[in-house]
């Protein structure tokens, strides 16, 4: 009987949906509900695969980690995909690791419909993640100022003289 359902963070899908997903929204949601893959965001550019491995292994054996790369420079750009062998282990990562710190940053994890070649690359104009295009604050772990701030700075420079 399913009268009593306890609150469980892992049962809920986050609001983010991959806009490049090939398929209908309902197909995508069905895959998300059976997936063993997680998206991990807000990583420092300097965080290594080894560190991510260590942290996420606390919830179960990992099949693989795909580091997100800047599509121009081919260097880590602050996100990754983690594939577990078991759905329950991935659920535990959402429950117990998402929202805690790695390299002093609060990392965020979400269900992912499954890794497809090409998705490891940042989709921002400059090669990194889109969020780093529009950011205007200074984040030393994520390449300093966002691209928007840098562009702003450049225009200001030109205007001054």
């Amino acid at each position: 009987m399913a009268t009593i359902s306890r609150v469980d963070r892992a049962q809920e899908l986050g609001s983010y949906r991959d806009q490049h997903y090939r398929g209908t929204i309902s197909q995508q949601e069905k895959r998300l509900k059976n997936s063993t893959t997680l998206y991990v965001g807000n990583l420092s550019f300097f965080t290594t695969e080894e560190q991510i491995y260590e942290l996420f292994s606390k919830c179960g054996d990992l099949k693989r980690i795909i580091m997100g790369l800047d599509k121009v420079r081919k260097t880590p750009c602050g996100f990754c995909f983690i594939e577990y062998y078991a759905r329950e282990d991935a659920s535990n990562a959402l429950r117990f690791i998402s929202g805690t710190r790695l390299d002093d940053r609060i990392i965020r994890t979400d269900w992912d419909a499954g890794f497809i070649e090409g998705r490891q690359f940042g989709r921002g104009k400059s090669g990194g993640q889109v969020r780093d295009e529009y950011r205007t604050d200074f984040d030393s772990d994520r390449g300093g100022y966002g691209k928007a701030a840098l562009r702003q700075l450049q225009t200001l420079d030109q205007n001054m003289f």
Partner: peptide, 11 residues
């Protein structure tokens, strides 16, 4: 429960 659950709870 899983050990990591307690780490998360204590945090």
């Amino acid at each position: 429960k899983q050990e990591v659950a307690y780490t998360a709870l204590l945090l």
